[in-house]
Write a protein that binds this DNA or RNA. Structure first.
Length: 491
RNA sequence: CGGGGUGUAGCGCAGUCCGGUUAGCGCACCUGCUUUGGGAGCAGGGGGUCGCAAGUUCGAAUCUUGCCACCCCGACCA
């Protein structure tokens, strides 16, 4: 088995092929830049979906669904939005094929040309605000707090499995509010939901902050982001929440009558996370033996592997294992008993490590004799033999412990790779040799941001919310700065 | 769209420079026996339009021309 290299950028393709193919997550699809999410990978996604969906509902949102196709004219209504997305849209121009008798081939029927082209959604603001226009007349119709789980298509020039695929799955929340304050609160609420999910479920520490003008979502007045640091020192934008102001309401003429009888435009937010989070999950925690999944998101938390020499032993172990499985399931754990006779125990050990199962139990003849069981944890790859009577408590303890440990490990990694730099030459060296987050002063201009990007390939990932004010001088121009911002090379 | 690279079995590759039996290796797959506490051993077996097309030649995976696809690095981006 080829080793999975997590540190070096140049080995990521190898790493992906192994993890992704062998761990049954996905494989390259014949369609340009698209991915097949294999059953095990999709199980992880479903798990994430389930948690996020509950978080959205708990914050008052409901699910809905809007069309995949957006008429081209909708798109051009919001100027900066169309500018941001125009270059990466798949466009439907015809609605029928026909048999070309000369060539004996199927061709696009020229007679089936659409009068107005349809855009395959790269995001749904336009069609949703077109729809909201009919839903909103009065302040009594507000707020609208809607989320949709959907697929979208962005025809990027360059794709990267999981991190930037042509088609991807995501959720997009689109809310409408009567006041600016309320919309702003919603924007911040949702970035906090994302940060909560990333840290407490994925075990992945994130920096919360706002984007600079040039990195902002097309059509937004403010973009909040969570930025995670991958094990190769590159940053990954993992979720965003946008304050859209009244831009889309104005573009789609969505006005409402307020309590005082005055007409005003509606305030909007949108927010989303995608299957990129699976890439983040993989890249944040995996090691040379494969995936490491946080217990809270692992589709199966515990696997039990029988070790036996003959059928008689297997029967005895089966009985015992099924009992243990039942007990664990009663406590709410997802458990798999792998009694396949087609693979040997050693093979199974390696297999479940590759797939990142948090806890592995092994039970064999020795254990039957001694009333013991072997318990192994994926995050540290350590194992111990415990008495069966204490197993349930041990599992409780381990599940918590593993969840906390992988978070702590990722946090330590980030701490060790976050540097305060005040010298531009040092900054350049760090970007070339070390990677990671660099906290530095910036004069606030797009010119400086652009210069740094051209010279170091590092961009401003965010202006952190939590960072303290600290007066300083821009690392490039020496002009005054009120606060450090976070730079990194990013995916 | 620029720069680089690769296309040979499901996966990973050798063979190509310098044309020559029936195209080979590892893993995986199938059958049988022995095995089973960290990816088992032995024996046998199946699987290929050598990316596509044309050309050169007695003969092409190998040489020539054209095309296509994919990967990596940039520009772009969740």
């Amino acid at each position: 088995m080829a080793k999975i290299i997590t540190k070096k950028e140049e080995n990521y393709s190898q790493w992906y092929n192994d993890i992704v193919t062998k761990a049954d997550l996905a494989e390259n699809s014949p369609v340009r830049g698209c991915m097949v999410i294999k059953p095990y990978g999709f199980a992880i996604w479903e798990k994430m979906q389930g948690v996020l969906d509950k978080m959205f509902k708990d914050t008052g949102h409901s699910n809905a669904y809007f069309p995949l196709f957006i008429p081209k004219s909708f798109f051009s209504r919001e100027a900066s939005h169309v500018e941001g997305f125009a270059k990466e849209c798949a466009v439907v121009t015809h609605y029928r094929l026909k048999n070309d008798e000369k060539e004996n081939n199927i061709i696009v029927d020229p007679g089936a040309k659409l009068e107005e082209e349809l855009i395959v959604r790269p995001t749904s603001e336009t069609i949703i605000w077109h729809t909201y226009k009919n839903w909103i007349q009065s302040y009594r119709d507000l707020p609208i707090l809607v989320n949709q789980w959907a697929n979208i298509v962005r025809w990027e020039m360059r794709t990267r499995l999981f991190l930037r695929t042509t088609e991807f799955l995501w959720q997009e929340g689109h809310t409408a509010h009567a006041t600016k304050e309320e919309a702003m609160e919603e924007t911040v609420r949702m970035i906090n939901v994302y940060a909560d999910f990333a840290e407490n479920w994925m075990g992945m520490p994130v920096l919360k902050g706002t984007k600079t003008n040039s990195e902002r979502f097309a059509g937004a007045l403010e973009t909040y982001t969570i930025e995670a640091l991958m094990q190769d020192g590159k940053a990954l934008q993992s979720g965003t929440s946008h304050f859209l102001g009244q831009n889309f309401a104005k573009a789609f003429d969505v006005q409402f009558t307020d309590k005082n009888g005055k007409l005003d435009y509606v305030w909007a937010t949108s927010w989303g996370v995608s299957t990129r989070l699976m890439g983040a999950l993989i890249m944040a925690h995996s090691d040379d033996n494969g995936l490491v999944l946080p217990p809270k998101l692992a589709p199966t938390q515990i696997v039990i592997i029988p070790i036996y020499k003959n059928n008689e032993q297997l029967t005895q172990i089966n009985e015992k294992a099924e009992k243990i499985k039942k007990q664990l399931q009663d406590k709410g754990y997802s458990v798999k008993f792998d009694d396949r006779d087609t693979h040997k125990p050693g093979w199974k050990f390696a297999e479940y490590e590759l797939k990142g199962y948090p806890i592995r139990l092994a039970i064999g003849p020795k254990d039957l004799e001694n009333n013991t069981i072997e318990i192994a944890r994926r995050d540290t790859l350590t194992k111990e033999v415990v008495n069966q009577d204490g197993l349930l408590n041990k599992v409780d303890e381990l599940i918590d412990n593993i969840q906390n440990n992988i978070y702590k490990k990722a946090l330590d990694y980030r701490k060790n790779n976050t540097r305060k730099i005040d010298d531009y030459e040092e900054f350049k060296r760090i970007m070339n040799e070390e990677g990671g987050f660099v906290e530095a002063h910036w004069d606030g201009t797009a010119e400086t941001e652009e210069k740094v990007k051209n010279e170091t390939r590092a961009s401003i990932r965010c202006i952190p919310i939590d960072n303290e004010e600290e007066k300083g001088q821009c690392i490039v121009t020496g002009k005054p700065s009120a606060k450090r911002v976070v730079f990194a090379r990013a995916y």
